[in-house]
Amino acid sequence: TQTTHELTIPNNLIGCIIGRQGANINEIRQMSGAQIKIANPVEGSSGRQVTITGSAASISLAQYLINARLSSE
């Protein structure tokens, strides 16, 4: 079954999640098997909405990979 998880990434950290020309986010997508959508910046908001869709296992793996990127910054 597909589930969806949403999280907010601070604007100053979204770059390390996306990577150069989307390299990091594509790697996270491939490794986790989850669909990951990053919302466009919202004016006045300090973060970007990230939506992860997939199986429970792929979502938790995607979250783990995202958190690993954030903590390495």
Rank of each mutant, 00 (worst) to 15 (best):
T1F: 10
T1D: 15
Q2L: 08
T3A: 13
T3R: 15
T3Q: 14
T3G: 15
T3E: 15
T4P: 06
T4W: 05
T4G: 06
H5G: 09
H5L: 15
H5R: 14
H5T: 14
E6I: 14
L7K: 03
T8C: 14
T8N: 14
T8W: 10
T8I: 12
T8E: 14
T8R: 11
I9R: 02
I9T: 01
I9K: 03
I9Y: 03
P10L: 02
P10E: 06
N12P: 07
N12M: 05
L13F: 09
L13S: 11
I14E: 01
G15D: 12
C16A: 13
C16L: 09
C16R: 15
C16D: 10
C16Y: 07
C16M: 14
I17T: 02
I17W: 02
I17G: 03
I17P: 00
I18F: 05
I18L: 05
I18W: 06
G19D: 05
G19T: 02
G19N: 02
G19H: 01
G19M: 01
R20H: 15
R20I: 10
R20M: 08
Q21T: 07
Q21Y: 06
Q21H: 11
G22L: 04
N24D: 12
N24Q: 12
I25F: 03
N26C: 07
N26F: 05
N26D: 09
N26K: 14
E27G: 06
E27Q: 13
E27I: 07
E27D: 09
E27K: 13
E27H: 09
I28M: 05
I28G: 01
I28N: 01
I28Q: 02
R29E: 13
M31F: 09
M31L: 12
M31I: 07
M31K: 15
S32C: 07
G33W: 04
G33N: 04
G33L: 02
G33F: 00
G33M: 02
A34H: 03
A34V: 01
Q35K: 14
Q35F: 06
I36H: 13
K37I: 15
K37W: 06
K37M: 10
K37Y: 12
K37L: 08
I38R: 02
I38H: 00
I38F: 05
A39D: 13
A39M: 09
P41M: 14
P41F: 13
P41S: 10
P41N: 06
P41Q: 13
V42T: 09
V42R: 11
V42M: 06
E43Q: 06
G44L: 04
G44E: 06
S45V: 11
S45W: 04
S45C: 12
S46H: 07
S46N: 14
S46T: 10
G47F: 08
G47Y: 12
G47Q: 13
G47N: 13
R48K: 04
Q49V: 13
Q49E: 07
Q49F: 03
V50A: 02
V50C: 08
V50M: 07
T51N: 04
T51H: 05
I52H: 00
I52R: 00
G54Y: 00
S55M: 03
S55Y: 08
S55G: 06
A56F: 13
A56R: 11
A56T: 13
A56P: 13
A56E: 11
A56I: 11
A57D: 14
A57Y: 07
A57S: 12
A57R: 13
S58Q: 14
S58D: 12
S58W: 00
I59Y: 00
I59L: 05
S60T: 12
S60L: 05
S60D: 15
S60Q: 13
S60I: 05
S60Y: 05
S60W: 04
S60K: 10
L61N: 06
L61H: 15
L61D: 13
L61P: 00
A62E: 00
Q63Y: 04
Q63I: 14
Q63N: 12
Q63E: 12
Y64L: 11
L65M: 05
L65A: 14
L65W: 07
L65C: 01
L65R: 02
I66L: 10
I66G: 03
N67L: 07
N67K: 08
N67A: 08
A68L: 07
A68T: 03
R69L: 05
R69H: 04
R69S: 09
R69I: 06
S71A: 11
S72W: 04
S72N: 15
S72C: 10
S72T: 15
S72Y: 08
E73R: 11
